[in-house]
Computed example of a mutant assay.
Amino acid sequence: MPSTNSDVEKSAMAQTEYGPGSGDPVTYQRYPTRIANPGPAGLFSFAATTFMLSMFNVNTRGIQHPNVVIGMAIFAGGLVQFIAGMWEFPRGNVFGATAFASYGSFWMSYATINIPASGIMDAFSDEAELGNALGIFLITWMMITIFFLMAVVKRSVAFTLLLSALTIALGLLAGAEFSGMHVLQKAGGIWGIITGLIAFYIGIAELLAAESTAFMRFPVGNYDRPRAS
């Protein structure tokens, strides 16, 4: 028996879920998709890169130069996150698409700045000028993070904690660049480690939620929001 227009509409409406971590209802009314949730991939990539750089910022095991993180920033924090953002668009998740694509571009731009062949660092002969430039770079991303925080503060406890910690970390690291105070860099590194651990937690929660055979579930504190009917 052929499907009626009403059947098609009901089938499309049935494909409604909450966006990754944000509690944002995602409804595929016109363009149903079977794309899997890219949230865990994006979150794990963000978490791993942030955690690694932050461990370097607190001089773990005497490490003074964070350049080893460049590869992670290009391919994990950058490329994988950016792709995750692109996959969120056909799923209808505006927050996930915008956040993953934005932070993916952040990590790729950070890596480019720190690649010697780019010549960006060498363009600054004055160390104070370089610090001010990097400070502006970090402050800008702190502002963007605050904008993302405004979108989730009443939707998800986990994402509110994640973006709050990231805002503090970026603010402290920007202050370190402006002032040259190493203690601020360490403080930013500590908050960055906290940010990475929270992102790991949300990524695990999203991954387990997608597996019907998972033996446990982790709560992320999504507030109840009315679904489309």
Score class of each variant (00 low, 15 high):
193 I>W: 07
66 P>D: 11
82 F>V: 04
101 A>G: 07
203 G>T: 05
85 G>H: 07
68 V>I: 11
93 N>I: 01
124 F>C: 10
32 P>D: 04
105 S>A: 15
78 G>L: 05
202 I>A: 10
97 A>S: 11
63 I>P: 02
161 L>D: 00
73 A>C: 10
107 W>Q: 03
191 W>P: 03
194 I>F: 10
130 L>I: 05
92 G>Q: 01
40 P>E: 00
217 R>N: 09
43 L>V: 00
168 I>V: 15
125 S>L: 09
133 A>I: 03
167 T>P: 01
97 A>Y: 00
174 A>Y: 07
171 G>T: 10
54 S>E: 10
118 S>E: 10
136 I>N: 05
26 V>M: 11
83 I>V: 15
207 L>I: 01
152 V>G: 09
222 N>D: 07
198 I>V: 10
153 V>G: 01
172 L>F: 12
197 L>F: 13
91 R>K: 10
116 P>L: 11
217 R>G: 04
69 V>C: 09
227 R>E: 12
141 W>G: 03
21 G>Y: 06
213 T>R: 13
120 I>S: 04
80 V>M: 14
127 E>H: 12
190 I>W: 13
18 Y>G: 00
80 V>C: 09
33 T>S: 15
10 K>S: 05
151 A>G: 08
150 M>R: 14
216 M>I: 12
134 L>D: 04
127 E>Q: 14
59 N>V: 02
95 F>T: 00
19 G>F: 03
34 R>P: 01
187 A>S: 14
83 I>M: 13
75 F>H: 03
78 G>P: 06
146 I>D: 05
210 A>G: 12
209 A>I: 02
229 S>N: 05
1 M>V: 09
55 M>T: 06
220 V>E: 14
229 S>D: 11
26 V>L: 09
157 V>T: 13
56 F>K: 06
139 I>E: 11
10 K>G: 00
134 L>V: 11
170 L>F: 15
112 T>C: 11
192 G>Q: 07
201 Y>P: 09
51 F>A: 08
125 S>T: 15
129 E>W: 02
66 P>E: 10
